[in-house]
């Protein structure tokens, strides 16, 4: 029960952070978003994270940056990934998996100054 209450509170925070919708200004919209998001998080058919696949995808991005002659980005990614794995926790692969899921054409769009 505590888990559900915490998840519900975190879902509200997530909705506010992403949509900038605030409950008092749009109560109906907010409660609909809350219900659909919570449902999406609780009832899904995704498999658990494949740790090897996560590492392979990150290596793949590094290689693609190098192929496109974007050595600085490749080095920056490699350095940070090594740093994350150096302080690896139970959830490190899942956190990297989440980031990889939201990656948006980094080899075309990423800039070091961004």
């Amino acid at each position: 029960m505590a888990f559900l209450a915490e998840l519900a509170a975190q879902t509200d925070e997530l909705i506010e952070a992403v949509t900038h919708a605030v409950p008092p200004s749009a109560p109906k919209k907010f409660s609909r978003l809350h219900a659909t998001t919570l449902n999406r998080l609780r009832n899904h058919k995704f498999l658990s994270t494949n740790h090897f696949d996560v590492k392979k995808q990150l290596d793949g991005y590094e290689e693609r940056f190098r192929i496109q002659d974007r050595e600085a980005l490749a080095d920056a990614l490699k350095e940070r990934v090594e740093s994350v794995y150096a302080r690896e926790t139970q959830w490190t692969p899942e956190l990297l998996h989440f980031i990889l899921e939201l990656a948006d054409k980094p080899t075309q769009k990423s800039r070091l100054s961004a």
């Binding site: 888990f3 915490e6 998840l7 975190q10 925070e13 997530l14 909705i15 952070a17 992403v18 949509t19 900038h20 919708a21 978003l33 659909t36 998001t37 999406r40 998080l41 899904h44 995704f46 498999l47 658990s48 994270t49 959830w91 899942e94 956190l95 998996h97 989440f98 899921e101 939201l102």
Partner: peptide, 26 residues
Amino acid sequence: ICISMIENGVNPEALASAVRELRNES
């Protein structure tokens, strides 16, 4: 927020799909 949710056991792929959906709503 997403890090806290994943550390609480939320599936990362489901969370990414929820974030994408919320962005569309936004």
